[in-house]
């Protein structure tokens, strides 16, 4: 590697990208520098996005929140607006890496790395996050779920960067839940993770539910049939056990160094039983 650039503005960035078409981009560096050290990649030029102010802000609009792709995971966790609207995202951030990693790593990096085990991805899927992609001449917006195609594979075009992540404030869910099963608490890669958003009526009937699992397939797994099954049913262990069986029938996880496929399948279903714990269901301010 010969050069590192640290643009502060989009215009500096676009100029650098014209001059160095094959440059690799990074923000926190917690993934890229590990790959470079392992000699998996050897870019001649690096562009570090950490000082690009235009992707470093959190903005609140009437109906949505925009998170700059370069916002560190630590700053997201400290932000009262994010905690107010998106507790499920904060729960996932608390489980991500370690405090030092969260001080460096960015939300945009977690998306661009596109790992099936990326901790922010299941919450961002069910929060129906949309991504803003910019290049010198173009700007487009698309759902996160349409952007990630497989491990490390995204729909980014040459010359584009991920600039902002938009999350709608509504609908409001009172139930926010994230859990990661790993081999240890801190610094672990998910064996299976689940993110859930749900509402129940005063009679404990499930009125709305969104679910997503990490580390169960090449991308984040959603199971619309399970969600449909749960709608209108009473939230209790019998309902959740029946839904867990459905989950186990539908998912096709792999075996790898961290866990076997059978274990993953079983845990993916059983994690649903947590939704019956009152602590995971709280009246949000909205």
């Amino acid at each position: 590697m010969k050069e590192v650039f640290r643009p502060r503005t989009f215009s500096e960035l676009w100029q650098l990208r014209r001059q160095h078409e094959n440059a690799a981009l990074y923000a926190g560096g917690t993934d890229l520098l590990v790959q470079m050290r392992a000699a998996k990649i050897n870019p001649q030029t690096l562009i570090c996005l950490e000082r690009l102010a235009e992707i470093g802000r959190i903005e609140e609009f009437n109906d949505e929140i925009a998170i700059g792709a370069g916002v560190s995971q630590h700053h997201l966790l400290e932000n009262p607006t994010i905690l107010k609207y998106f507790p499920v995202l904060c729960q996932a951030l608390q489980a991500l890496g370690s405090p030092h990693i969260r001080n460096m790593a960015t939300i945009g990096g977690n998306i661009m790395t596109a790992s099936p085990a990326g901790d922010t991805l299941p919450p961002l899927y069910i929060l129906q996050a949309e991504l803003e992609l910019r290049s010198q001449k173009t700007q487009r917006r698309l759902p996160l779920a349409d952007f990630i195609n497989g491990p490390g594979q995204t729909g980014i075009s040459p010359g584009e960067i991920l600039s902002r992540i938009f999350i709608p404030k509504e609908p409001v869910f009172a139930g926010h839940y994230f859990e990661k099963i790993g081999l240890r608490q801190a610094l672990s890669i998910a064996v299976v993770s689940i993110a859930a958003l749900y509402n129940i009526s005063t009679e404990r009937k499930i009125t709305a539910i969104r679910l997503a699992w990490g580390s169960l397939g090449p991308t984040i797994v959603t199971l619309p049939e399970v969600e449909t099954f749960l709608i209108g049913k009473t939230l209790n262990p019998a309902t959740l056990n029946a839904a867990a069986t459905l989950v186990e029938q539908q998912v096709k996880p792999i075996s790898d160094i961290r866990a076997g496929a059978d274990y993953r399948r079983r845990v993916a279903g059983q994690l649903l039983l947590r939704l019956d714990q009152p602590a995971n269901y709280r009246q949000t301010s909205a």
Binding site: G29, L33, R37, H74, G97, H100, I101, N103, M104
Partner: peptide, 23 residues
């Protein structure tokens, strides 16, 4: 050398960072 052990922790502008993952 991969951000998993914290032995290279330094403080940069008041925040802990890992010197193995910083250029």
């Amino acid at each position: 050398g991969a951000g998993e052990c914290g032995a290279c922790t330094i403080i940069v502008d008041g925040t802990t960072k890992l010197a193995c993952l910083l250029l």
